[in-house]
C-alpha cells in the first residue's frame, strides 16, 4: 500500500454543497419518521464503533432538553438476520459502510420488502443511484477516512439537523397527495418487492411473504421452489419473478 502514515491533510471542504443538501433531506425524512414513531437501526459491519456512536447520539442527546429518540446499534455477526427481525414497517435503517459491503448491500436491497427507509453513509466508490433513500458520501477514497472524524461529523450533523426539524412541527407530516415517488409502493400498479417468510406448507399452496404493508400469502407456482429469505416480485396475490440477491 502507498498510504501515507506521516501526514494527513484536512480537506478544505468537509461537507460540499451537494452533500449538504443530501444531509438536509435525510434529516427532514428522519425527523418525519421519528415523528411517526419510527426507530432508527444502525449497522456498521466494518466499523462497529460508528454504529454505537450514532445510536448513543439519538438516545442520549448531548444537549440537555433535546428529545431522546429510539435508536439501536445492531452489531451481531449477521446484520441482515438481526435487522430483519428487529425492524417494523416505517422504521429507518442507517448503515455506515463501504459501497461493496455485502451485508449492507443485502440490507439495502431488502429494505423495501420490510417497509423501511434507508440512509447510507460511506466513502470511496459511491453506491449506484437508488441504492438507498439517502446516500451521504464522503468525497474521498483515502482509507484513513473512517478514523479521522469524517463519519463522526456526518452523523453529528444528521443529529443536529434532525432536531432543528422538530422545531418546525408543520413540516413533520406529509399529506398523502404529496406522494411524488416515481413508483409509489401504495398506489402503483407495479410489482411489489416481497421477502419469503415461509415456504408453502403443501404442494401448490401459497408461500408466506413479507411486504411493506405486512405479511400475506401469495401463489408461487410461476416462480417454482422458494425458501425463507428469497426476494420475489408480487402482484395481485401472485409471485411474478424471483429477484437475484445483490
Amino acid at each position: 500500500m502507498t498510504v501515507q502514515t506521516d501526514h494527513y491533510q484536512i480537506a478544505d471542504e468537509l461537507i460540499g454543497t451537494d452533500l449538504s443538501m443530501d444531509l438536509a433531506q435525510a434529516s427532514l425524512s428522519l425527523a418525519r419518521a421519528f415523528h411517526r414513531g419510527a426507530t432508527l437501526w444502525v449497522v456498521s459491519p466494518q466499523w462497529e464503533p460508528h454504529a454505537h456512536h450514532v445510536a448513543v447520539e439519538f438516545v442520549h442527546p448531548v444537549i440537555m432538553g433535546k428529545r431522546a429518540l429510539p435508536s439501536v446499534a445492531l452489531v451481531g455477526a449477521d446484520p441482515v438476520a438481526q435487522t430483519r427481525v428487529a425492524v417494523r414497517a416505517g422504521d429507518v435503517v442507517l448503515a455506515v459502510a463501504a459501497a461493496d459491503d455485502p451485508a449492507t448491500r443485502s440490507l439495502m436491497q431488502r429494505a423495501p420488502a420490510w417497509g423501511v427507509s434507508t440512509i447510507w453513509v460511506g466513502f470511496g466508490q459511491k453506491p449506484p443511484d437508488g441504492a438507498a433513500d439517502h446516500v451521504l458520501w464522503v468525497a474521498s477514497d483515502d482509507p484513513m477516512v473512517p478514523a479521522t472524524g469524517r463519519f463522526v461529523l456526518m452523523y453529528h450533523l444528521l443529529w443536529e439537523l434532525t432536531h432543528v426539524c422538530f422545531e418546525h412541527p408543520g413540516l413533520l407530516t406529509v399529506d398523502d397527495e404529496e406522494c411524488t415517488d416515481e413508483v409509489c409502493v401504495t398506489c402503483s400498479d407495479e410489482g411489489r418487492l416481497a421477502e419469503v417468510v415461509e415456504a408453502p406448507l403443501e404442494l401448490a399452496g401459497p408461500a408466506a411473504v413479507r411486504t411493506a404493508t405486512g405479511e400475506e400469502d401469495v401463489d408461487v407456482t410461476l416462480v417454482g421452489e422458494v425458501a425463507p429469505g428469497d426476494l420475489i416480485l408480487i402482484h395481485a396475490g401472485l409471485a411474478l419473478t424471483k429477484v437475484e440477491p445483490s
Binding site: 444531509l23 438536509a24 426539524c165
Partner: peptide
C-alpha cells in the same frame, strides 16, 4: 426554505 437553511447550517 427549511432544507436550504439546514444545508447552509451543515456547511
Amino acid at each position: 426554505a427549511l432544507l436550504v437553511d439546514l444545508a447552509s447550517s451543515a456547511r
